[in-house]
Design a protein around this nucleic acid. Structure first.
Length: 410
RNA sequence: GCCUGGGUGGGGUAGCUGGUUAUCCUAUGGGACUGUGGAUCCUACGACUCGGGUUCGAAUCCCGACCCGGGCCCCA
């Protein structure tokens, strides 16, 4: 084997592509029904777009290169930044809210593992222009609905960064993102040590640990007692009420955090079994990125589904397509082409291109699982009909083209 | 970047305490069979991941690289 695909990339053969397209179309269908429009952004962007969003630290995980004009280019590692860039560049004056969905490949230079590749696919959604609980709730409900359409059921965790941030507000801002990262990692030990080294007040420390440990029905009320009757609590309560209206099952989880400042309020993640260490299939939240990219400050909410991960666990399988094979003889090959062309208006039709003998053509039809075979021979042509052979029963009869079409449509 | 297991024809395998022409199954092309499929037989095709080392001799032992799996780190 002289050549092989680069590490962490994959080839998709027809059988798998068929399944991937099927699931993709399910997700697309849901997004479209909810009123979202598909967008597409470039495969590569200026690298600043991503360092601006995520810091210089991501450089080690990005595929980047200098183009012939000496520009620093990066293959997109995610799609939120490009979408917001697109918004700032050409859509700031469009009527709000903007509702978009996308499905595309992304690239990250990482160690491949189960559910983790260097080229991977994300299906995502963004609402731009609303900071209200209604948009947060809609986005979460849409995520769950999409997963459901793909036959995937996961655990939904919902949190709010405004609440956590309010609690650690008194702590120097230079420490806050580090705290958020430790919270997100569920690294209680590391968190405690860090809080000690920066001499965080004991009552804040205690409250923080209580907050991120909250769960169950009363979590919101207990959170209110911890941080007071702040705006974030009101917003979060409104969101949870709406999630109830959508009929969603969820778990309040203040342990979901992001170490980046532009995540402001709602955050959510969906986890699934059966994926090993990469058990998160969907992550999202509300954020304010537009200003960072030079636009007016604008609220957005969105999420991305790890498409490869749901492919790994989804149970849904497409119906196998019906296939017809047109079988001919040495002296009827040309007629067979014409007949195949007509049949292709109605059904997936195969035609021999190997110059095979009659018998081998039928054997081939069998190996590809054709449901029917049309035999085009002198006898049939003379009678002005076609021989339709059912590959399951072996039955065969002389029928007209119209009858063949009628039966296919049944 | 770190730890760990693994790489033999397209797929699945035997060999792996060094020594024939690297085994078998399957898949694929052609044929036996010139208007009727799944069978059978014949035939063709096709592999030791790569590079070093040890040795008279390496698929086999050693080292490194590459790739795959699992975990860590990271997770925008």
């Amino acid at each position: 084997m002289e050549l092989q695909k680069p590490r962490g990339t994959r080839d998709f053969l027809p059988e798998e592509m068929n399944k991937r397209r099927y699931i993709e179309n399910k997700l697309r269908g849901v997004a479209a029904h909810w009123g979202y429009g598909e967008i597409k952004t470039p495969t590569f962007e200026h690298i600043e777009l991503f360092t601006l969003k995520s810091g210089e630290g991501i450089l080690g995980e990005i595929y980047n290169f200098k183009d012939k004009g000496e520009r620093e280019i990066a293959l997109r590692p995610e799609l939120t930044a490009p979408v917001v860039r697109m918004y700032v560049e050409e859509l700031q004056r469009s009527p709000k809210p903007l509702k978009f969905f996308y499905f595309d490949n992304c690239f990250r230079y990482e160690r491949p593992q189960k559910g983790r590749f260097r080229e991977f696919f994300q299906f995502g959604v963004e609402i731009i222009g609303s900071s209200r609980p209604e948009s947060d709730a809609e986005v979460i409900a849409l995520a769950v609905e999409m997963l459901k359409s793909a036959g995937v059921r996961g655990d939904l965790h919902v949190g709010n960064l405004g609440i956590v941030r309010a609690l650690i507000n008194e702590i120097g801002s230079q420490h806050q993102s580090k705290i958020m990262r430790l919270v997100d990692k569920k690294d209680d030990k590391g968190l405690e040590e860090f809080l000690d080294t920066i001499h965080a007040p004991d009552d804040i420390k205690g409250k923080l640990f209580r907050l991120i440990g909250l769960h169950g029905e009363n979590a919101i009320h207990e959170a209110r007692e911890l941080v007071g009757d702040i705006d974030a609590i009101t917003q979060f309560k409104a969101l949870l009420d709406l999630l109830d209206v959508y009929g969603l099952e969820y778990q309040v989880d203040f342990g979901i955090a992001r170490g980046l400042d532009y995540y402001t309020g709602m955050v959510f993640e969906i986890y699934c079994e059966g994926l090993g260490a990469q058990n998160q299939v969907c992550g999202g939240g509300s954020y304010r990125l537009a200003a960072l990219f030079g636009g007016e400050d604008t609220a957005s909410t969105g999420y991305a589904i790890g498409f490869d991960r749901i492919m790994e666990i989804c149970e849904v399988n497409p119906e196998p397509a019906k296939r017809m094979v047109v079988v001919s003889f040495e002296d009827t090959r040309k007629e067979a082409i014409v007949i195949a062309m007509k049949l292709r208006e109605h059904i997936d039709t195969y035609l021999d291109v190997m110059g095979r003998k009659f018998k081998d053509q039928i054997a081939y039809a069998n190996t590809i699982g054709a449901s029917h075979v049309i035999i085009v021979g002198k006898n049939e042509l003379d009678a002005g009909k076609l021989a339709l052979k059912d590959m399951k029963t072996g039955d065969q009869e002389l029928v007209s083209m119209e009858e063949v079409v009628a039966r296919i449509n049944k």
